[in-house]
Each structure stands twice: as C-alpha cells, then as structure tokens.
C-alpha cells in the first residue's frame, strides 16, 4: 500500500501556469448573500423575531392611534398619524436591531462566529451578510408599518417616489443604529447591554416629535426632543409624506446617521474580529 503511494510516476497532474484566486469582490458578495440568506431563514422561523418585526409595530400604530389621536390632534390641529406612523416604523427597526444583537451574542457564545472565521470564505462576508439581512428586515418592517398607517389616516402624498425615499431614510437610520447595537453587543462585557439598549429605545419612543408635537414638552426638554436622531428622521419622513420642507431634517438625519456609522463601524469590525478569534 505504501509502495503504491510512494510511487508517483504513474500519476499525472495537469500543468498550471499560474494560480488564480477567486476575485475578492465576487467572493465577498457570494459569501455575504449566503450569510444573509442564513440569517433571514433563521429569523423567518423564529416567532419572537416575527412578532417584534411585524405584529408589534403594526399593533403599536393602531394602539397609539386609539389612545392618543383625539387628544394630540386636538392640541396640534393636524392628524397625529403623520408623526406616530414614522415613529413606530423607526421603533420597529430599532427593536429589531436589538434582537439581532442578542442573536449575534448567541452566535458568539456557541462558537459559530469562530467557525465562520476559519472557513475558506471572505472574512468580511459574515458582517456584510448581517447588514444585508438587517436591511431586508428594516424594509419589511417599515413597509408593514406604513401599510398599517393607511388604516389610521397616514398618506404618502408624494407618491411612489416618496415611498421609496421614506424607505431609504428609514434604512439609513436603521442601519446606523444597528451598527451601534452590533458594536455594543460584540465589545461589551455586560451580558445585558443589548437589553438596556432596548430599554433606551423604549424611552426614546416617548421623547420625539412623532409621539406628540415638540411644543407639548416642557420648554427645558424641547431642544433635546427636537434634535435627537429619531425626531430628525421622523420629521424627514413626515416631510416626505406630506411634501413639506425636507432639506433641514434630512441633513440632520444624514449627519446623525453618518456620526453613528463613523463612531461605531471601527469598533464593530474590531469586535467582530475579536469575537471570532477568541478561543
């Protein structure tokens, strides 16, 4: 048996002039799509994720409208739906990011991230795949909320272009927030950090210009409420839906999103490497 293996004269290998690696961009995209599909399939089979991404946001629109529409509309003179629907859409996107963060921690603790790191695949594909999956989830959540919003009086007067623009704005903000949650999930030693982020999200839900108009808040709180990232994004979506003044809130939204991405992209990548290479 050993003689057969030792005698290689009978074996003929094909001649190669040069070794060509798979193009990096193609490998990255191919791996990212596989990862995104894996995450989306997992989410679609998890009732908790489906509840958080679809049922809860849609239900929140209806409940907040039932409880607050008359009081808020009487105070402001306009339908509360144009603030409340964008707010719930963003809260849906943000709470989904928290669930994703918890899932990421679980993948780290079970060793799945380490396993992915050792596979012959582009190492950035797992991270990019997660971002693609997040994007799909945000688009579905926001679309579901906007659809539910039509039942309570929310209308997009700017037509299909306005709808696409609203999705794009929500996606920009949602992904930047997701980047922050991912960084916290990967780098923090506190196992409850993602849950605390979710509590922060809940608190932010009450202190923005979508819940009630800014003039309803105490004067000392108004500047904080008006300029916090959620309010800027809500004002942008409201302006896009009603064909109002969009430039100022849009610029503020993009600045907030850019700031979150600049601050948290580095830590996210470092955290991903650390989480994947820890034994």
């Amino acid at each position: 048996m050993t003689d057969v293996i030792a005698d290689t004269s009978a074996l003929s290998f094909p001649e190669r002039d040069a070794w060509t690696a798979e193009p990096t961009a193609r490998a990255l995209w191919h791996g990212a799509v596989i990862q995104a599909r894996r995450i989306l399939v997992k989410w679609s089979r998890d009732p908790v994720t489906l509840l958080q991404s679809l049922l809860f946001p849609a239900l929140m629109v209806l409940l907040f409208w039932l409880v607050l529409d008359r009081s808020v509309s009487a105070h402001s003179g306009v339908s509360s739906a144009f603030g409340m629907v964008p707010m719930v859409a963003l809260v849906g996107a943000m709470s989904g990011a928290s669930i994703s963060g918890l899932g990421l921690r679980r993948e780290q603790s079970t060793g799945l991230l380490s396993k992915m790191w050792t596979l012959p695949a582009h190492r950035a594909s797992a991270m990019l795949g997660r971002l693609i999956a997040e994007s799909v989830r945000i688009v579905i959540t926001v679309s579901a909320v906007l659809l539910m919003g039509t039942a309570v009086g929310f209308r997009i007067h700017s037509g299909p272009v306005g709808f696409v623009a609203i999705i794009a704005v929500a996606l920009t903000f949602g992904l930047s927030f997701s980047m922050m949650v991912t960084a916290l999930a990967l780098l923090s030693r506190d196992s409850h950090i993602v849950e605390w982020t979710a509590v922060g999200t809940q608190l932010a839900m009450f202190f923005n210009t979508g819940f009630v108009p800014a003039d309803a808040y105490p004067s000392w709180l108004r500047p904080i409420v008006e300029y916090q990232p959620m309010s800027c994004t809500i004002d942008t979506i409201r302006a896009l839906a009603t064909e109002g003044e969009v430039l100022r809130p849009l610029v503020l939204t993009l600045l907030w999103s850019a700031a979150l991405l600049i601050v948290f992209t580095g830590p996210t990548l470092a955290g991903y490497r650390k989480a994947s290479t820890l034994n």
């Binding site: 009487a74 809940q202 608190l203 009450f206 309803a216 105490p218 709180l221």
Partner: peptide, 23 residues
C-alpha cells in the same frame, strides 16, 4: 429593572402628555 421600568413609563407618558391633558 423593577425600579427603571416604572420610571420609563412615568416619565414617558407624563412629560409629553401633561400639557395636552391639562388642556
């Protein structure tokens, strides 16, 4: 959590809706 959740709801509903309900 038992301490923070009541705070979230108390502040979350009271501060935004106080003026509206006072009306």
């Amino acid at each position: 959590v038992a301490i923070i959740m009541p705070l979230v709801f108390a502040l979350g509903f009271y501060l935004p809706l106080r003026l509206i309900m006072a009306g």
